[in-house]
């Protein structure tokens, strides 16, 4: 039985995170805890600051204020105060980032196997046979046939590219995955398969994930908790079905009531 005990330490503790672009606010005063095994959804319309927030958390942007405390193997550390090599090491071992466009997260000129193997080599794997075996195993887990291992991602469909990106990111067994619109730009039927895959991986690997999306149906199925952003600020957060079924903030009420029912 792999039961996640209710632990006392959050995996990630974000405190008053603020990022300004000149006089404009990217995101402001964002605070939340993410616990091991939890999936947090961040929703909001374009320009609400959700991607800025994700970039600040993942270390792609430097925020102006605040703390991002990650529970590293050596105890909780403020990621923003780490040295660049320390942060890069963390982003290879403990973190993963799944981009909306697989082209941003894959090396398009390298084979599928190479894309997965590269991540392993970055954390020290050297034995060619082992690397290839693990790459094959991961291609199977994301439902890419083993005989496609030597094909380049340019020969893959959009859905396959996205699954390959997920394999490349998860092969090193990260504890926290950042996802920026992971199902955006995919056909709904491909989206469904990807959602099921992500849910299974989160469950089996005990991953925590932060998913930015504008799709409320995606977060209802995938996220345990939800944060709603507007104009760079968090206007509401809580259990996903509570925020969607009994929204408290005027903006969330508008957002939920604007969704077309199918």
């Amino acid at each position: 039985m792999k039961m996640e005990p209710i632990t006392a330490t959050p995996l990630l503790r974000v405190d008053n995170l603020t990022k300004r672009y000149g006089s404009r606010i990217g995101c402001a005063d964002v605070s939340f805890d993410l616990w091991p095994g939890e999936v947090l959804g961040i929703v909001g319309e374009s320009g609400s600051g959700k991607s800025t927030l994700l970039s600040c958390l993942a270390g792609h942007l430097t925020p102006d204020e605040g703390q991002v405390i990650f529970d590293t193997a050596g105890g909780p550390r403020d990621v923003l105060r780490m040295t660049e090599p320390e942060r890069r090491r963390l982003s290879r071992t403990d973190w993963a980032f799944v981009h909306q466009n697989p082209r941003d997260g894959l090396r398009m000129g390298v084979t599928a196997g190479g894309n997965v193997g590269e991540r392993l080599m970055a954390v020290g794997a050297r034995h060619y046979g082992d690397i290839r075996d693990r790459a094959t195993d991961w291609l199977g887990r994301v439902e890419i046939a083993a005989e496609r291992i030597d094909d380049r991602p340019t020969a893959f469909s959009g859905g396959m590219q996205q699954r390959l990106q997920i394999a490349r990111n998860l092969v090193t067994g990260p504890r926290l995955v950042f996802m920026d619109e992971p199902t955006g730009g995919l056909d709904v039927s491909v989206q469904a398969r990807l959602l099921d895959l992500l849910r299974g991986l989160v469950r089996e690997m005990g991953l925590s994930a932060i998913i930015v999306t504008h799709d409320l149906a995606v977060v209802r199925l995938l996220a345990d908790r939800l944060m709603v952003m507007k104009s760079g600020r968090v206007v509401e957060q809580g259990l996903t079905d509570q925020v969607l079924d009994d929204p408290q903030h005027p903006y969330t009420q508008l957002l939920v009531s604007s969704v077309l029912q199918v």
Binding site: I6, W35, E38, L195, R220, L221, D224, R225, L239, Q242
Partner: peptide
């Protein structure tokens, strides 16, 4: 929220009128 998530996992079940699945 995380306490409610844990409660729903092990202790509290709910059969609603609608099936919501991936």
């Amino acid at each position: 929220p995380r306490q409610i998530i844990a409660l729903r996992r092990a202790t509290l079940g709910y059969v609603s009128q609608f099936l919501r699945v991936v």
